[in-house]
Amino acid sequence: MSSTVLRDWNNRSNKIERIWLLAKIEFKLRYYENKLGLLWALLKPISEIFIFYVAFEIVLKQGVPNFVSFLFIALIMWNFFVESTAGTIQILNAKKYLYEYTNMNKLEIYLSTILSNCIGFFFNLSLFLIYFQFLDNGTAELSLKSLYIIPIFINLVVFSLAFSLILSNIYVLAKDITQIWLVITGVGFWLSPILFKLELFRKALPGVDYLNPISGIIINARNVILYNKNPEWDLMAFGWVYSSFLLFLGLILLNKIGSKAAEKL
């Protein structure tokens, strides 16, 4: 019954096609406008891994086993979050052409942009998995538990969408949110367990793994992929409640402020 309703809705509406079309165009604009293309997407985490490897393993000798994989998985998650939030603060301004002349639902603009970021993420994730499975020595094998990465990643998408909605709607009223968010993500990077051993991180910053939404995501992504363990269930459940609340807040803002974007921007 419900599948018939869904199929019927999909046949009559072109929403899914439209979101996919906009996502493809966005992706093309981002990566195919320059000669290096998709390589740029990979160059960023690789250069970061190189810098942090030198700093934390060679100079500071932190002693994290398989530090490259440890960093790689965290960085692609973190970069996805930053690109989907900092990169979309001005989305209502940049995509004004889509809603200024029609009654298109603005939420579709956000969904297509995040979908385009997902394409980039899957590219990076595939390369990570190839490195982890075939090139990195002494790591646990991928197992069925690794499939928990799917709900973890969806949780990350919900967080990113929620922050994207909140920030871009604040932008309608306060343009300097762009700079403020840059500072927050700058601090947030060092308050996430991207570079440090989890025990050290938890000892030094108790409670931050719950407060910083991306911490839980990174901790659980490492658990299921690197260590062949189950996710920390309480952290995962908290992440879903946290992200649902933020998404709800973001949708309220879109309804209250975003609806006036055409006249305010």
Binding site: N14, E17, R18, L21, L22, I25, L98, T102, M104
Partner: peptide, 11 residues
């Protein structure tokens, strides 16, 4: 394609 899609047409 974008305008057509926004106006409700299928690809």
């Amino acid at each position: 394609y974008v305008s057509g899609s926004v106006l409700g047409l299928k690809i």
